[in-house]
Simulated assay, not measured.
Amino acid sequence: MPEITRAAAPQDSRLWVERIPPAYWIVGVILLIIPSFASDFVMFQIFGWTFILGMIATSLMFLGGYGGMVSLAQMTFAGVAGYMVAIFGDSAITNISMGWPWYITIPLALLIAVIFATCIGWLAVRTEGIYTIMITLAIAAAFFYFTRQNYDIFNGFQGFNSVLPPRLFGVNWRGPEAFYYLTLFWAAATYFAVLYISRAPFGLALQGVRDNPRRMAALGFNVTAHRVAAYAFSAIPAGLGGILLTWQSAQISPGTVGIQPAIDILIIAVVGGMRHPAGAFIGAFLYVILKTFAVDVLIALGLSGDRFQLLIGLGFLLVVFFSEDGLLGLWHKLRASRARDPLTGERRS
């Protein structure tokens, strides 16, 4: 009997590998070899920022796509983790920062972000629709003004600077290539973790709560507990993104957690598509490209660079107008149209 088990194991392993879509292999290989030909700016600014914003937007996608809850507080959760790393760790503000080691600072920052998100979720899940959005927006605004006006803990509008990642294994993790692989690793971990949770019993129950909370309650599921737990889980990728964002810019200030960044995360998630975690990273990549190059294009055309937000807004309206599920929705519609016969409208075999 043990011999049969040992013989079957490699076959099961091969079957698992074969189930991975070819697109995953292609994208994975491309992402791994990008540093071999990309510039430092592309690795650090374009892709590093894309992975970070994608992680924060994935936390919103998890709440909205699987839980049916739209939150404008995800950037706040990220900011809480970023601020905690600066407060408990090292920064140029030595009279506030405590200088604790990274293996205490990072888990503690994530824990505080999760606790904060749990408290916010406990309040927000008792409302629905526009009221949930308004509550989370009010919390984001309150946190922004609190950090801006508090100098004893958050150092007011100046915030913290010289917040750098720990130097582990002799590697400068803020170097372009090292930072690229660091953010790629955590972005991939976030992506697959959200995919796994969505197919686990908790994720399936959460989607049932999204579709029919009364029936799920009748079946014995605690609807409120599942929704609050979803907020708590969403704080983990958001908090990781907030820490990486703080390390990328080497600083964190109230501007990082302002109202505009909170809305930007919503735009990224909606434009990319709320149906699948990949949508968050697609939306983040498009946003970073526009944010980085659109101003230069507008100036070259003789227009004011201040119209960048107008360009983002027009793009948002166009995507939402043609697809309720963002760019992923457009892609699925295109694939569905190609799979149908143009004359009969029936699916091709």
Rank of each mutant, 00 (worst) to 15 (best):
P237H: 08
A205I: 10
L240A: 10
R214N: 13
L240H: 00
L240I: 08
T224Q: 09
G242V: 11
A218P: 03
R215P: 13
A230V: 02
P213I: 07
L240Q: 00
P213N: 05
G208R: 12
G208V: 06
A235R: 05
A205R: 10
F233A: 04
I252D: 00
A250N: 14
V228W: 01
W247P: 01
V209S: 07
L206P: 13
H226A: 04
Q248I: 14
D211P: 11
A205M: 11
A235E: 07
V223Q: 02
A235T: 10
G239D: 08
P237T: 14
S234G: 03
G241Q: 07
R227Y: 02
H226P: 06
L244M: 15
A218M: 06
R214D: 12
G242W: 02
A235I: 04
A232M: 08
T224W: 09
G220L: 11
G203D: 11
V223W: 04
N212D: 09
L245M: 13
T224G: 07
S249G: 06
L206N: 12
A217G: 12
G242T: 11
H226N: 12
I252P: 00
R214T: 13
A250Y: 13
L244S: 07
R215S: 12
M216P: 06
L219S: 08
L244C: 13
L206V: 10
R214H: 14
P237I: 10
L245F: 15
W247C: 06
Q207W: 03
I243V: 15
A230T: 03
Q251L: 13
S249F: 08
S234A: 11
G203I: 09
D211R: 04
G241R: 01
S234M: 02
L240T: 06
R214A: 13
D211Y: 10
L245I: 14
A217M: 07
R210Y: 04
R215Y: 10
G220V: 15
N222K: 06
L206F: 14
Q251M: 11
S234D: 04
G242S: 09
T224E: 15
Q251P: 02
I236L: 03
V228L: 04
V209A: 05
A218N: 06
G242I: 13
L206T: 12
T224S: 09
Q248F: 14
I236V: 05
A250G: 13
Y231I: 02
F202M: 09
L204Y: 15
Q251F: 11
Q248K: 15
L244N: 02
H226R: 05
R227F: 05
Q251E: 09
P213G: 09
F221T: 08
I236F: 06
G241A: 13
S249H: 07
A230K: 01
L240E: 00
H226S: 06
L204D: 11
L245Q: 02
R227Q: 14
Q248S: 15
R227V: 03
G203K: 01
P213F: 06
A229N: 05
I243S: 10
A217P: 01
M216G: 10
L219G: 08
F221Y: 15
V228M: 07
G208C: 06
Q207I: 02
I243D: 08
L204A: 14
G242M: 08
W247V: 06
G220I: 15
A232S: 15
A225N: 01
R215G: 12
Q248P: 13
A205S: 10
N212F: 12
A238D: 00
A250P: 08
A230S: 08
A205V: 13
N222S: 05
R215N: 14
R210W: 07
V209G: 04
I236Y: 04
